[in-house]
Design a protein around this nucleic acid. Structure first.
Lengths: 220, 220
DNA sequence: GTCTATATAATGATAGAC
DNA sequence: GTCTATCATTATATAGAC
């Protein structure tokens, strides 16, 4: 009795199952909103066992961060080694649980997660430099936006599932989302004219802030 | 003494200041991670006053949701009425605090926030239909991805600030981000060939799931 | 409207039995 | 390795004084 092995793997040690449950719950509800007892209950063990294996909630969190980082790096290396890194899918392809946890961790201000963000941007820049010779003015900023959007969208699973009419954790929803993302990445939202208009609007906005009109000439 | 009016508006009632502080803290750290005492301290009043004005934390949260929704709708109407709705900036232009709160609220599972997500997708579809005649196969999914990414990226303020080297709440950082977004929206990440390759990979992946080979014919 | 004091519940941490 | 029992802390909720 009791809900054991919701991830479908009952052949893991209790410690590993606790870590997995913690990652899933942390990703879903946030770290602060998840109690040690919640995690223990999800695995079907007592709260004391969490303490026994990890010492404290903070240590458990660290263990999750380390595990996620390790797995993501391993996944990246596999993809790179296997030569199938290919497209920009280097970002959120596979490992949705890991990535969702990591993004949550970012929002909660984890240092290692922040570091990972920078790495992803650098990685995107490399890919862009190799596959997209020129045509992009601010490559760094472009990639930062790309990574921020890609990761941010991961947090919108529930909303995307509702709007697209299919669970984003099920194969069906994943495929539809993947197709939509390809279309999104290959069909520019703004044509050159619209982009020029938008940039002009930004320039104008920059020169005349909302309510004040600076009288001094030098800018600082 | 005490920190009062961090938003720069001291001419608001204590109730309004509490609501604003709650929205800022909820957006920054999440609802569960923010205590009533934190909010009261931010405004410089006692925790009891929060209870007096709002009754409970849940009621305070509802008040924040309602206020954010009202303000966003008003902003939308103003933009539409003023005729300056223009570009796809209808999404996250202005009101960053409101939107950040709203996205956090979405992640925490707020019904009204979820409803707002659907509305934004519908709005994006209207804009797309008016400004982007054809060329997009699945307009609904395309817009869902657009909104999810736009809103999701809002949550990455800290990471974007670090990577771009400027605070995304300051005009300087905002301008750089705005420019990067325009470039991102106007320069496709994937060229037609890359897109075709990606779609082919998705099709293949759909036909042969990772590890299991189903022997039965009917799917349930 | 605003504060202080207190009741009640939940949480992380801890000790010890099996 | 795993559990139960308990402590100290913190949070929300509540009542009442000014």
């Amino acid at each position: 009795m009791g809900a054991v092995g919701e991830l479908g793997f009952d052949d893991l040690t209790a410690k590993a199952r606790l870590r997995d449950a913690a990652m899933r719950l942390f990703a879903e509800h946030g770290v602060e909103a998840t109690s040690i007892r919640d995690i223990a209950k999800a695995v079907g063990v007592s709260g004391g066992l969490v303490r026994h294996h990890f010492g404290s909630k903070e240590a458990l969190r660290d263990a999750c961060d380390t595990y996620a980082l390790t797995q993501l790096v391993r996944f990246k290396e596999q993809a790179a080694g296997g030569g199938q890194a290919a497209g920009p899918q280097f970002l959120s392809a596979g490992q949705p649980v890991l990535l969702r946890y990591f993004v949550r961790s970012m929002l909660d201000g984890s240092p290692s997660a922040r570091e990972m963000f920078s790495q992803m941007v650098a990685q995107a820049e490399d890919w862009l430099e190799a596959n997209h010779p020129d045509g992009i003015a601010d490559r760094h900023a472009y990639c930062a936006v790309l990574v921020a959007m890609e990761l941010g969208a991961l947090m919108m699973r529930e909303q995307l599932s509702t709007v697209l009419g299919a669970d984003m954790l099920e194969p069906e929803g994943l495929v539809r989302l993947a197709r939509a993302k390809v279309e999104f990445y290959s069909t520019p939202l703004l044509n050159p004219k619209a982009a020029a208009t938008a940039l002009a609007a930004i320039d104008q906005l920059q020169q005349s802030p909302p309510k004040r009109r600076p009288t001094r000439k030098a800018k600082r």
